[in-house]
Computed example of a mutant assay.
Amino acid sequence: MADKQYIVFKLNGEKFAANINQIASITEFASITSLPNAPAYVEGLLNLRGDIIPVINLKKRFKMAYEGIDNQRILIARKGDIQIGFLVDDASQSMTVGEKNILPPPMIAIRKDNKYISEVAVYQDELIIVVDLERVLTDDEIDEIMDL
């Protein structure tokens, strides 16, 4: 197994990462249109170069406290034919982690509602939770959002 590359992002000052292959692009926070009757974690819709993309607030999805941030970013990911944006506080660096520094997620951390934790990376003496962006939302939740 070779080294893996990740994009590092922050939520309330905590570092997380996502596999670089899951991210189509990173864009600055732009005008998001609210979506009536959407689940609380859906921030709204983003018009990105003519594509209308639902934006998920990862802090709300992960049930984290809200701390205002000025320079938010949106990670654009694909799940099949669907593009989904993930609102994060910052996403400005990439990291390459060797195979020996990639650990399975601790069993205590895996529950039904957070199966999106795919692994833990040890990078510069920090433990960074790696999020599988394809598993943040279930297929049923994606269908619900697309039907709104």
Score class of each variant (00 low, 15 high):
Asn19Met: 05
Ala24Lys: 15
Lys112Gly: 14
Tyr41Cys: 03
Gln22Leu: 08
Lys4Pro: 11
Val130Cys: 05
Asp143Lys: 14
Ala121Gln: 02
Ala121Cys: 00
Asn114Asp: 05
Leu75Gln: 06
Ile82Val: 15
Ile20Cys: 00
Ala77Met: 07
Asn47Pro: 11
Ala109Ile: 14
Lys112Gln: 09
Ala121Ser: 01
Met107Arg: 08
Arg61Glu: 04
Gly44Trp: 03
Pro54Cys: 08
Gly13Ser: 01
Tyr41Ser: 02
Leu11His: 07
Ile117Arg: 12
Leu58Lys: 01
Gly68Phe: 15
Glu99Thr: 09
Arg111Leu: 05
Ile56Ser: 11
Asn21His: 15
Ala38Trp: 01
Val42Lys: 07
Asp147Ala: 14
Val120Trp: 02
Val130Trp: 05
Lys112Leu: 15
Leu137Asp: 08
Glu126Lys: 12
Ile26Glu: 01
Ile108Ala: 09
Asp3Ser: 07
Asp132Ala: 08
Ala121Asn: 00
Ala91Arg: 04
Leu87Met: 11
Leu127Glu: 08
Gln5Ser: 15
Leu133Phe: 11
Lys79Leu: 02
Pro106Thr: 05
Pro106Gly: 00
Asp140Asn: 10
Phe9Ala: 00
Gln124His: 14
Asp51Ser: 14
Ile82Tyr: 06
Leu133Glu: 03
Leu11Ile: 13
Arg78Lys: 15
Asn19Gln: 15
Pro36Met: 01
Gly98Tyr: 04
Asp140Trp: 06
Ala109Gln: 13
Asp51His: 13
Glu67Pro: 10
Pro105Asp: 03
Ile84Glu: 03
Ser118Asp: 14
Ser92Phe: 09
